[in-house]
Computed example of a mutant assay.
Amino acid sequence: MSTICRFIHAEKANYTVTLLCKVMKTAPSTYYAWVAGRKAREARRQDDEALAHEITAIHLASRHNYGVPRVTAALRRQGRLVNRKRVERVMRQHGIAGNSRCTGRRSLTKADSKDAPAPDLIGRDFTATSPGTKIVGDITYIPTAEGWFYPASWLDLATREVIGYSMADHHRAELVVDAMDMAPRWAAWSPAA
Rank of each mutant, 00 (worst) to 15 (best):
G95L: 06
N99E: 12
D120T: 04
R105T: 09
P117C: 03
S107I: 02
L108A: 03
P117F: 03
P117N: 02
G95Y: 12
G95E: 09
D112L: 07
A97W: 07
I96H: 07
S100T: 08
A116T: 08
A111D: 15
G104D: 01
S107K: 09
G123W: 12
P119D: 06
S113V: 11
I122D: 01
G123M: 07
D112K: 14
K114V: 09
D120P: 11
A111S: 15
G95N: 12
A97R: 15
D115G: 00
G98E: 04
D112C: 11
A118D: 02
D120N: 15
P117A: 05
A116W: 02
N99Y: 08
S100M: 04
I122N: 03
K114E: 12
A118E: 00
S107G: 04
L121H: 06
G123S: 06
P119C: 01
L121R: 14
D120C: 08
R124Y: 13
R105I: 03
A116N: 01
T109K: 11
D120R: 11
D120W: 12
A116M: 05
S113P: 12
D120G: 10
S113R: 15
I96K: 08
L108Y: 00
I96W: 11
K114C: 08
C102L: 03
H94S: 10
G98Y: 04
S100I: 03
N99W: 08
D120I: 08
A116H: 09
K110A: 13
L108W: 02
T103W: 01
R124Q: 13
R124D: 06
A111G: 13
L121T: 00
R101V: 04
S100E: 01
G95V: 07
P119F: 02
S107W: 08
P117W: 04
A116C: 04
R106A: 12
R105N: 12
G123A: 11
R101K: 13
T103I: 02
A118C: 01
H94L: 00
A118T: 00
G95I: 07
T103S: 02
G95R: 14
D120E: 14
R124K: 15
A97N: 09
G123D: 13
D120Q: 10
R101S: 10
H94F: 05
A97L: 06
S107T: 12
N99P: 00
C102P: 00
K114T: 10
S113G: 09
A97P: 01
R124P: 08
S107C: 08
R101E: 06
D120F: 13
G98F: 05
D115T: 05
A97T: 10
N99S: 10
R105Q: 12
R101T: 07
H94M: 02
K110D: 07
R105F: 09
G123N: 14
I96D: 10
I96Q: 07
G104W: 06
T109V: 07
S113Q: 13
K114W: 10
I122H: 03
K110Q: 11
